[in-house]
Design a protein around this nucleic acid. Sequence first.
DNA 1: TATGAATGAGTGTTCATTCAT
DNA 2: GATGAATGAACACTCATTCAT
Lengths: 231, 231, 231, 231
Amino acid sequence: MTMGQLTRSRTPRRARSPEAKAERARRLLDAALAALAHTPWPELAVAQVARDAGVAKGTLYLYFPTKESLGLALVDRLMGAWFDDIIVALNACRPPISPAACAQLLVRSTDRHRALVPLLAITGTLLEANVAPAAARAYKAEVLRRTLECGVALESALGALAPSEGARALLHVHALVTGLHRMAEPAPVVKSVLRAPRFAALRVDFATELTFALTALLTGFIASRKPSRTS
Amino acid sequence: MTMGQLTRSRTPRRARSPEAKAERARRLLDAALAALAHTPWPELAVAQVARDAGVAKGTLYLYFPTKESLGLALVDRLMGAWFDDIIVALNACRPPISPAACAQLLVRSTDRHRALVPLLAITGTLLEANVAPAAARAYKAEVLRRTLECGVALESALGALAPSEGARALLHVHALVTGLHRMAEPAPVVKSVLRAPRFAALRVDFATELTFALTALLTGFIASRKPSRTS
Amino acid sequence: MTMGQLTRSRTPRRARSPEAKAERARRLLDAALAALAHTPWPELAVAQVARDAGVAKGTLYLYFPTKESLGLALVDRLMGAWFDDIIVALNACRPPISPAACAQLLVRSTDRHRALVPLLAITGTLLEANVAPAAARAYKAEVLRRTLECGVALESALGALAPSEGARALLHVHALVTGLHRMAEPAPVVKSVLRAPRFAALRVDFATELTFALTALLTGFIASRKPSRTS
Amino acid sequence: MTMGQLTRSRTPRRARSPEAKAERARRLLDAALAALAHTPWPELAVAQVARDAGVAKGTLYLYFPTKESLGLALVDRLMGAWFDDIIVALNACRPPISPAACAQLLVRSTDRHRALVPLLAITGTLLEANVAPAAARAYKAEVLRRTLECGVALESALGALAPSEGARALLHVHALVTGLHRMAEPAPVVKSVLRAPRFAALRVDFATELTFALTALLTGFIASRKPSRTS
DNA sequence: TATGAATGAGTGTTCATTCAT
DNA sequence: GATGAATGAACACTCATTCAT
């Protein structure tokens, strides 16, 4: 009987409680995330996600009104986790840390959240279309909140950023991450073409270049503050 | 020469000579470029491009085997023009120029080639798919050639880059340009959402941030060389 | 009786008594009627009707097994009211009344029951499909009963119809009402097209034409009897 | 060789000439008409029509921009044929003919064009939605032209209609045809229900009732003119 | 060469109905 | 009795690409 109850509470046929509904949504996001590991967003079929999550297509639409809102919710989740990860890592440092150390920390965190990067790159192009204004606002509000929070942590860790420059620096981090990813992970055809030795100069190693650029960027942020101190 | 000019201005029904064929291709690219000013790539209809260029749909396919190859040819053209522009601007300077000055030069050049940026952002995701290996190779070879050429000009202008670091720096320029563009130009829904005052921290001014990041980056490139000199 | 009134005014969560159940059904029909004032039947969502009636979707299905049965019940109610109205109006006349007077009486009554007409027009096409045989029989039995009853009133009022021709005349009234309504109320696109002066000949004024046709029809019914009398 | 040419000209793979294109459209309309004999309009699948016509789905959309425009074109064709038939029949009479004779003529013509009637009944509800204003205008212009033309023929045949009342009478004919058809051809469930003897009064024989109503109507039209003469 | 008619795979979304709770 | 979460069949339409003419 206890068994039965457990079984029932684990996988109820109908999600009536808010927790159960959240669980359903989570499963759908899990399925989407897994599928995106081997399928680019435009090729991702809603039907497949639903099937993988073990529900009917219509059920997915009870939780996400459009395909894009599903994608946005996934980005929201992954970005939140990324921010969490960065914050934890930053707080684990004894400030002040050097730009290079901070860059390395950020790159490592990015590496732990590889799945987010390709999605981030299409946010604003493919995902943010076909989403209700309210949903877009909620998403952006969350992004804002977390960016500010993480920005403060960044300021603390570096110890040399002007107030609120942490958030700004994070926007640049995002830009660099997506921009470099695009160059590091081209379409399969291009990837195989670039394997030829003569194309060495066009091959981009994501971690190496990101570390380099972030170090330069953070150094720049700190330098841009220094003058005002000396003056 | 007179003949050639006449031929070009007459635009015969059938393009027999290489010049006439190149003219046809040019017209198609012109039409595509004009259409892309108000239509995002996925919404761009091949039929519309052909119609705008004054030819039948099938004719377009005589010059570009796929929609993507058309896009790639356009990127090729625009990127070439951009590289030309940068090279001219760099050569017009009396070296060495400061990273800040160089960044400003690059941003201005980018601004003169606004049309390229959104296309660049989807290269590798949408454009480089569905292209024959040979076409991809040719495109990448051209990119390589121009990148190296422009990289050398960059090295000369800055006067403080390690050999072949100019090309590498240009890859970063590309990454920053596309990465920041994505954040500066979101979908219409998002754009209107971000207009609210509370979202000020998420609004990105393309030119400002690009200038800042490029300055930092170039400074970093120069700094990364210095140590090896002093040691 | 006091109890019943209380119960009805309280609208308990669960309808146990027959009165309470009838009240529930009535509310659902009210909601459907209100919605149909601005939404055509195919666009009418069952969920919306339930929501408007303040019950859950599933509850509606406790009272009406299909969407169509809901529509049919509504037609039943409205047609009953229409018949009532006609009978009252006919009984208020001092027979015999002229065909023209009778036609006018019928048109006025139709005008007081405008909501029924578009529904009547789709009965038999959209409504009578997907209904259980038993429900269809019950509905038709009711229609028969009221038609015969109203037919007798019509015979009395006109004073010159052969027995049982009243019911037959009413069938023609229905046909004319729905047939003319279809022409008088086309889709919005067509309506705006027909506003052009050149289309005057295709514009149909419902009341005018219905009056004319009914007068002719009733005259015809009376005339068709006379010969048999004189012969 | 003559054979080959014949074969080729009969069923060319591509319809390039206007004639060939008209032929293609005709085939599609034929297929739709055939399908509508056993499938009601809402259930009619575009894919099926295309398949029956021996072309791909996309080809159908080269000729008809929406499903509704296909339906409207079919109505246009059938209504034109009906009008032709009526005109021929009217012109074959020696005027003046009696209302009863004229009614019989019209009923016979209707009977020869049975396929049109159910379509006519949904024109304005299902068909005239989702059609471009220009298409709706063209359709209505054609209807107007033919109605006026046929109206004149009707006036000639009856010899006793006020000018332009012929067209008006035809609108009533349409109304009666569709209104009575609705009652004579209910959904299968209802039809079987009505077979029970007790429901005899609700059974409508299309031809009988239409003849009766049209006779009355035309008599009414003529009568409505007479008074003005005597006065 | 040029044309443009033909192709047909591909998919997000709705909504009447059911049924576990 | 009431609920509302789950279902899943059903479908018009687009558009890059091909190929008969």
